[in-house]
Structures are given as structure tokens and as C-alpha cells.
């Protein structure tokens, strides 16, 4: 006789908690230091094909040229145009903190004035009806004494 499979099944619950220290590196490091130092956003330009990168990159991914020359570093923004966005309305576990994401949480892809580069960053406005692709936005920086050379030195982008 076949025994009905109502037997208990064991599922074990566990928690992974691993610390890491990520070196931002030379180029992104200088980008972050400049946010703290002067409240400005750096991009750099490929000396061969002219493509810009923000945050600055050491090598052009299109033409594989080294982007080492300091004179090719330019300030972009703080104003820009919104190219695309999302608004998270459902929360999820943020793995870097272990907390649930505070929603609504909106993020935009901002085309910064001065070069064809875009930065992903948080938007102040969280009502999707009030956010439009093509709208003008501006970076809001933390006061200088609170800046820590990380991406949060830009508080968010707000509509102009």
C-alpha cells in the first residue's frame, strides 16, 4: 500500500551576514573625492573617440583607449535632463543593510549638462504622475561639512 505523502518536510532557515570593503579605485575614487571637495560631478573623455564616461573610467569600453589624461576630465551638471526613471512601490530587502527598502523610492537616469553622460541617482519626487521623461532636474548636495566622499554626498536630484 502506498503511503500518502503528508510526511513533514524540513526547511532550515539561515542567515548570511558577510562584511566587505570595496576599493572604489583611482578613477571612481577621484570622482567621489571631488563630490566632497567641491560639490562637483566629474566625467572624463576618451582622447581617441571622444566618448564620455561618468563616473570617469580608466579605459574607453568602445575603442579600448586608455583614458589617463587629466585634462580630459570635465565637470558636468549639476543640472540635467531626465532620460528615464522608475518608482519602486513594493519594498524588498536591501542586502547592504538588512532592512526593508523605504518606498516609494524613485531613481532617475539623468543626462548631465555638458556631456553625453548619464548618472543613476535618487529623485526627490516620488509621485510617478509628477515625473516626466525630459524634465529638467538639478543635483542637491549635502552641506560640505557633512560630505564623506561617497555617492550620498549628492542627496538627490530635484525638479527645477
Amino acid at each position: 500500500m502506498q503511503q500518502k505523502t503528508t510526511d513533514e518536510l524540513i526547511t532550515q532557515e539561515m542567515l548570511l551576514k558577510i562584511p566587505y570593503r570595496w576599493a572604489a579605485g583611482e578613477h571612481i575614487g577621484e570622482f567621489l573625492r571631488e563630490l566632497r571637495r567641491s560639490g562637483k560631478i566629474y566625467a572624463n573623455k576618451c582622447p581617441k573617440c571622444g566618448r564620455f564616461r561618468c563616473p570617469p573610467a580608466p579605459v574607453c569600453s568602445r575603442c579600448h583607449t586608455k583614458m589617463e589624461e587629466r585634462e580630459k576630465w570635465v565637470h558636468v551638471g549639476p543640472k540635467g535632463t531626465l532620460l528615464s526613471f522608475f518608482v519602486a512601490e513594493q519594498s524588498f530587502l536591501v542586502p547592504t543593510t538588512g532592512d526593508m527598502l523605504e518606498v516609494p523610492f524613485s531613481v532617475g537616469v539623468i543626462w548631465l549638462d555638458g556631456a553625453p553622460v548619464a548618472l543613476w541617482h535618487q529623485l526627490e519626487e516620488t509621485n510617478p504622475d509628477k515625473i516626466k521623461v525630459g524634465m529638467r532636474v538639478e543635483a542637491v548636495f549635502k552641506p560640505k561639512e557633512q560630505r564623506q566622499a561617497n555617492i550620498f554626498d549628492i542627496l538627490h536630484f530635484k525638479a527645477i
Binding site: 567621489l32 528615464s84 522608475f86 547592504t96 531613481v107 543613476w120 521623461v133 561617497n150
Partner: peptide, 22 residues
């Protein structure tokens, strides 16, 4: 990227939403 992208990523969903809007 932990330094510049991770705070603004919501898994794969963020990329999918950004491409969809675009």
C-alpha cells in the same frame, strides 16, 4: 558597483523599468 550604483539598484527590476520607460 558598490560605490556608485548599488544604493540605487532594485535588483534586475530597476534596469527592466528603465529600459521599458525608454
Amino acid at each position: 558597483d558598490p560605490a556608485v550604483d548599488r544604493p540605487y539598484a532594485v535588483g534586475a527590476l530597476s534596469g527592466l523599468a528603465i529600459i521599458s520607460m525608454n
